[in-house]
Amino acid sequence: MKYPLLEPGATIGITASSSGVKPELHDLLHQTSNRLRTQGFNVIYGDTVWNQHKSTSAPALVRASEFNEMMLDDDINIIIPPWGGELLIEILEYVDFEHIPMKWILGYSDISLLLLAITLKTGIATAHGTNVMDLRGEFSDPTTAMWLPTLSTRTGEAIRQHSSLNYQKEWNFNDPSPSIFHLTEPTFWKIISQASVNIQGRLLGGCIDVIRHVIGTPYGDVQYFQQTYIHNEPILWYLENCELSTTDLRRTLVQMKLAGWFEHCSGIMFGRSEANQPFDGYTVEDVYTELSNELKLPIIYDIDCGHLPPQNTLINGAWAEVHVEADGTASVTQYFRP
């Protein structure tokens, strides 16, 4: 595994590989760049960021070309898209995977598909965490703020993050928060069939809604990644559900199992989700219990990951030790080891 390094005074490239920003929201972009510059960063916006039409910022080839250009631009040190979207999968065939440099890419939601594909194909670590729009506040909550020290961790070093105290259940745009999020609900990491748990493994994951679509493609070859880059060390999956129904979540997890994604796996972690509603009495806890019994693996859920912020910054490819206590508190220690 290879890990980029974020240095002080870095230049952030903002490109919309999925959805861009409509004109009525451009002020949020200006707020974001102003805030980042006060923190010592430089900011470069791509042309795609300022547009949004029919579910994307631009045609797939345009989005991919801008991403490739920013990745190869030595003056840009990290890429953080404005947010996710719907159709990032369209750009994968145009991404220049053969010339991916050592540069952090940070994001979640639809962006997690790009993150996973890059790590699987190149062995370069990518960062699942906050989008750039959520860094425009006067300050960041302690969980979100860990993106910076995490991406500043050097190869061979380790960094520990903790579960949040509270999470945001819903957006309240009529009452803006200095830290962007309204963290009102107590956080409690849960475990299937155990009181506490310790799990170790190489982190991989993302938004299950989108990463499932590369199963069986050149962009989702988990076995190649295991054999080539982590030498068959166990994988610790983290997954978050944005919009799948409970039954569709179950179908997708079965597909992942049948495709071999859970071979050499040490455990699975699931983020909080508003989509986890019962279907005909069938609950998401039923899904997790069935999967745990089938795979004989520990399953942790309601972790700080996904569309109910805040989020831990999870590094695809890093070795992680996850400890969850019976009281719902947790720690994630990530080792940036080759």
Rank of each mutant, 00 (worst) to 15 (best):
Y3F: 15
Y3Q: 01
A10N: 05
T11C: 14
G13C: 04
A16G: 06
S17N: 08
S19M: 13
S19D: 14
S19K: 09
P23Y: 11
E24C: 10
H26G: 10
D27G: 15
R35K: 15
F41E: 06
N42F: 09
V49D: 04
N51E: 12
E66Q: 09
N68M: 08
L72D: 14
L72M: 12
D73G: 05
N77W: 02
I78Q: 07
I79H: 08
P81R: 08
P82T: 06
E86C: 07
L88M: 13
L88K: 00
E93Q: 15
Y94E: 06
F97M: 09
F97T: 12
H99S: 14
H99T: 15
M102K: 15
K103W: 12
W104R: 06
I105K: 04
I105W: 01
S109I: 08
D110I: 05
L113E: 09
L115P: 12
L116H: 08
K121D: 05
G123K: 05
T126F: 02
T126S: 10
A127F: 15
N131V: 03
M133K: 11
L135P: 10
R136D: 13
E138W: 01
A145W: 03
M146W: 02
T150N: 05
L151V: 11
G156H: 10
E157W: 03
I159Q: 04
Q161I: 04
Q168E: 15
Q168N: 09
K169W: 14
K169Y: 14
N174T: 10
D175H: 14
P176E: 14
S177L: 02
P178M: 08
P178N: 10
I180E: 14
H182N: 13
T184P: 04
E185C: 11
Q194H: 14
N198P: 00
I199V: 15
I199D: 06
L204C: 07
L204I: 06
G206W: 02
I208S: 02
V210R: 01
V214A: 09
G220T: 07
D221H: 05
F225Q: 03
Q227W: 03
H231F: 09
N232Y: 03
P234W: 00
P234T: 00
W237L: 03
E240I: 06
C242M: 05
E243S: 15
E243Q: 11
S245H: 08
S245Q: 07
S245L: 08
S245F: 11
T247F: 03
L253W: 01
Q255L: 09
Q255Y: 03
E263F: 04
S266V: 01
G267H: 02
I268T: 06
F270N: 00
F270R: 02
A275N: 05
P278G: 09
Y282G: 00
D286Y: 02
V287I: 13
S292E: 03
I300N: 00
H307A: 13
W319M: 08
E321K: 12
E321V: 02
G328M: 06
G328W: 07
Q334H: 06
R337L: 10
R337G: 01
